[in-house]
Design a protein around this nucleic acid. Sequence first.
DNA 1: ATAATTAATGCAACTGAGTTGCAAATATAG
DNA 2: CTATATTTGCAACTCAGTTGCATTAATTAT
Lengths: 127, 127
Amino acid sequence: MGIIRKTQSVEVLLNEFQEKSNAISAIELIKRLSSQINKTTVYRVLDKLEDDGVLHSFLDNSGIKWYAKCNDCSKAGHTDMHPHFQCVSCGKVDCLSIEVTIPPIPNREIEVSQILIQGRCESCNVK
Amino acid sequence: MGIIRKTQSVEVLLNEFQEKSNAISAIELIKRLSSQINKTTVYRVLDKLEDDGVLHSFLDNSGIKWYAKCNDCSKAGHTDMHPHFQCVSCGKVDCLSIEVTIPPIPNREIEVSQILIQGRCESCNVK
DNA sequence: ATAATTAATGCAACTGAGTTGCAAATATAG
DNA sequence: CTATATTTGCAACTCAGTTGCATTAATTAT
């Protein structure tokens, strides 16, 4: 698919990812933009932005979908594989720029790996 | 909570994990046992077996819940942290007994980490 | 053993994130 | 600026998982 037209919805959504660099859940976006964009459209635009390598998505431990900006991805594929961190205290989720190496597994061909780390984030750790 | 009574449902469910050692999705269990156990009960018993450290659970990439036998866990907590592998071809999921080390992250306290690896399993790799 | 107590079960109805079909609206190409 | 193709909104749906409550089955006490 991919983004074809620079529509209002696309602009509004992209804008949400401009400021802060942490991940945002689809649900949160739907809530935030409920007066401007329809829920279905939010899902559809997010989908396309992902196809286009602008955003990447992942599920948290309760199965809800999160989106965050991509750094080195393209339409060709999401190559930027990194772990995600979810704070068990405040719920904030962000991308970690650390490398986690998955050792090769006998007889299995690894395609992708999703790593979700849970713990207490910097701000919640102090309190 | 924890398991208190050795009921029929508990026995039937535990039996499903006796034979093969790979993970089974809640949905699959509900289908398999539909004539013997009610869906609600399946969810509730799985929940308790997890609390008791008999089974552990995780979500796959489409957000559905899987359960597998624990090896070194107890009521005190699930200590046996290992990656899970889902075959993109046949859908089979199993526990990997490999170690994946998450490096310490500055200012963050890691509690748990979920690693889901996707690729082609041994049998699907041959074909 | 049997009654009393407490936990587990089944059912039906619900929840909530995400999806689908389709007609109306809006971008882009010609 | 019209024609064509893509997006959008809406309402209705899907489907895994949950909840409340009355019934049933285990366990404990008698």
